[in-house]
Amino acid sequence: MQRITNFLREVVRELKKVSWPNRKELVNYTAIVLATVVFFTVFFAVVDLGISELIRLLSE
């Protein structure tokens, strides 16, 4: 039980050292992540559509 208690104390101590982002940084980082996800979603959808059409044309 002592090991678990020591571990949790160390976790709390380390979390106090973390430099947490402020609200503006958090909003900016979130927007960047969402924009990246949307970009790659559209990119892979277009690539998938292109490959599907190519396979359909070749199988006719």
Rank of each mutant, 00 (worst) to 15 (best):
W20M: 06
T30L: 11
V11P: 01
E14N: 10
V37N: 00
V37E: 03
T41V: 12
L15I: 12
V42C: 01
Q2A: 07
I32K: 15
S59Q: 10
V42Q: 03
L54D: 00
I55A: 03
L49R: 15
W20H: 07
L26G: 06
V46S: 02
E10H: 00
A31E: 12
A31M: 02
F43N: 09
V47P: 05
E53R: 12
V47S: 10
K16D: 12
V38G: 09
R13P: 00
N6K: 13
Q2G: 02
E25G: 05
T41A: 13
I32S: 11
A35H: 00
F39V: 11
V42F: 10
V11L: 12
P21L: 05
V33A: 06
F40V: 07
N22F: 02
L8I: 14
N6I: 05
E25N: 06
V38I: 13
P21R: 11
L34R: 06
L8F: 12
S59W: 06
F44Q: 09
T30F: 08
K24Y: 04
T41R: 05
N6M: 08
T41P: 00
A35I: 12
W20C: 04
Q2N: 09
I51V: 15
F7N: 11
L58V: 11
R9K: 09
D48V: 04
V18E: 03
V37Y: 03
K17P: 02
A45C: 11
P21W: 06
